[in-house]
Nucleic acid binder design. Structure first.
Lengths: 158, 158
DNA sequence: TCGTTTCCTTGACTCATTCAAAAGAAGCGT
DNA sequence: ACGCTTCTTTTGAATGAGTCAAGGAAACGA
């Protein structure tokens, strides 16, 4: 909708300029799209970007998302059963609440867990860099409407 | 290798009989394959099953894995960037260590985190059922050989 | 403005996973 | 043991997110 807000363009451009990446209108648009649609999948980003740049190729969006992820301007999350989703909020080690029924994703801060969650009981010799916590459950709407676990993709259910 | 161990077949059959599912040789073989290859992806399971049942269709394996997951005999995990992987260890709320370089997956018990990890700071009204923790890092081998993050699939790297 | 380097477009392609219809096996009651 | 019903498996095709590769276009330093 208001994707082409000048202030946002500037902010996105500035973020890009702080990396060694070239500032292209495609990347700026992708960065905006990710900010405007938290936890959006690639398809949503493509559609959002095309509101301001109707001619972008899907490849450009895929490339931008990868590159932006690599330099740390966006984060990619992929809860089980979901395609890749992207978010602008980075560096604060927050976690996610995922609704099993409607796939809604919500951010949660890990105020309690910060330290404990980063320390597994034994690390098997691993060099641990990051802990990712995903809470699975039902969002308020789905819980209210009595939604249970959705079909998990088996034709002949039990 | 020793996939057709009678003891194992019995155990797998018994587990199946405790559900309302029919006990078929395909399902028994899938259950064994998952136990014999912890964190195996579907392709590995298919190959393993075909050692004892050369004629199984991939569809049967997909269906079995789905059904077994649904009744809780196996668990499906899908770390970002990975295809679906399955494991037999269930119900003990253990977590995973994933190597960013070689994708090795190792189980870890969450001795410290049990309670804290299940309690996010605010639940946004969600009905939380489960917390899933994934630790990302480098396995001993990759850390030793100085492996850094692998290419993440962008042709024009920074 | 020019040239170099990086990025985008185009279009084909891969591969995990799913769909659908028909043939085949499990388990039930007799 | 036999047949019936229902659940499973096979077969073969389709879907769709994501990737590969080559050439044209744009960014940016000089």
């Amino acid at each position: 909708m208001n994707g082409t807000n000048q202030e946002h363009v500037d902010e996105a451009g500035a973020a890009l300029r702080q990396t060694s990446l070239r500032v292209t209108k495609q990347r700026v648009a992708v960065l905006e799209a990710v900010r405007d649609h938290p936890h959006a999948d690639t398809d949503t980003v493509i559609r959002s970007v095309r509101e301001s740049l109707p001619a972008v190729s899907h490849q450009a969006v895929y490339d931008s998302l990868h590159t932006l992820t690599e330099v740390g301007l966006v984060r990619c999350i992929q809860p089980s059963g979901s395609v890749a989703r992207y978010e602008r909020r980075i560096g604060d080690n927050h976690h996610h609440l995922v609704c099993r029924s409607c796939n809604l994703i919500v951010d949660v801060d890990c105020t309690i867990g910060q330290a404990p969650c980063l320390t597994p009981s034994h690390d098997a010799g691993f060099l641990i860099e990051q802990a990712e916590v995903t809470f699975w459950g039902l969002c308020p709407d789905c819980a209210d409407s009595g939604a249970e676990r959705p079909e998990v993709g088996s034709r002949s259910a039990v």
